[in-house]
Nucleic acid binder design. Sequence first.
DNA 1: TACATATTAGTACCAGGTTCTAAATTTTGA
DNA 2: TCAAAATTTAGAACCTGGTACTAATATGTA
Lengths: 198, 198
Amino acid sequence: MPKKKRQQQLLQIIEDNPFVTDRELTRQLKVSIQTIRLDRMELGIPELRERMKQMAEHSYDQVRSLPVDEVIGDIVDLQLDKSGISIFEIREEHVFSRNGIARGHYVFAQANSLAVAVIDAEIALTASADIRFVRMIRLGEKCISKAYVRSLAGRRGKAEVDVFTYVGEEMVFQGHFVVYRSVSEEYSEGVSRSADRH
Amino acid sequence: MPKKKRQQQLLQIIEDNPFVTDRELTRQLKVSIQTIRLDRMELGIPELRERMKQMAEHSYDQVRSLPVDEVIGDIVDLQLDKSGISIFEIREEHVFSRNGIARGHYVFAQANSLAVAVIDAEIALTASADIRFVRMIRLGEKCISKAYVRSLAGRRGKAEVDVFTYVGEEMVFQGHFVVYRSVSEEYSEGVSRSADRH
DNA sequence: TACATATTAGTACCAGGTTCTAAATTTTGA
DNA sequence: TCAAAATTTAGAACCTGGTACTAATATGTA
């Protein structure tokens, strides 16, 4: 078997089982352990322990950053009860591996998070939404959402927010959200239960 | 410092930094490395490498189950172009840690996934949706979504699907979805681009 | 004081490597 | 066809972050 092909196989084996030792690789590829190690060197694949360490650190980072993740997208501009802008880049974890197209609920989540953030209230909850996926969004595209508060019914009650999401000049998503604003006391009662807290 | 207190501290240190070595622990706790190791023994804390391995395996399991996760919820019944039922249990990772209430986009995703799955077509894409969060959903609740196909415009074009999500007898979410059904050729053209692939 | 508990020290050993030198084998180019 | 180059294999020394075990030395405490 040529060197290139072996290295491709090695890459594949490690990809679908990163917990494999060099010793196990020698058995699968029928070459010496030194060859395995030279191959790993050339391919820039770290040793088993380093791979596990990186995975552990990665997952630890994710766990740590989860609370931050409660709002999808970075809010870069916010004028309470008026408008807001958030940026969200479509990464690997947001797309279908099959075709690299963004999962709808991430696009929805960015808009939803922004619609709620823009409302100046102790508690804001999405009550309903009317949304449209104008075109599909691909891996790596940077989504810029702009929210505009259209109406406010007093200090409590319904607020209406329109959100438009763009990739460059192109609009890719639009949504009309009805958001309840309330103070904590109302929280366990009728009205504010009809909602989705953010 | 008494032994018990030291062991409590050791537990704490490792909890908020699982990547600490025994050597680093000796510096922080001012005892010999043997004492650290005896303490770890008594507390049942594995060595650094074992801790990292466990974290890596845990996160890998999660990554592995991601493709399955492309459809949110388990589809338990499906009559193509007619109706479908899916079950989705709200777990830790689906709620806001702050208050244990399900994030809206998971609830949306279950309904969306089902609405698309119920359509008998090579490619089905959500074009738009009109949704309502009837009441908030809490950690541990089991969401049962029922989808009904309301109209079908020929073998291609729009289909309308209504989805109702229940927790027990209570309706918690409802949505009206417009889904495009198409074959691959149309995929890169006008109509089918206005959508969100599932 | 004697006994128990806790702590420290030290040695041998392990997995799963890296790093380095060197030999053997295979491939390739002229 | 034959030598140079590339590839593969072998082996020894060393590394980290430990475990396992024995033994000596505090430190209480009854």
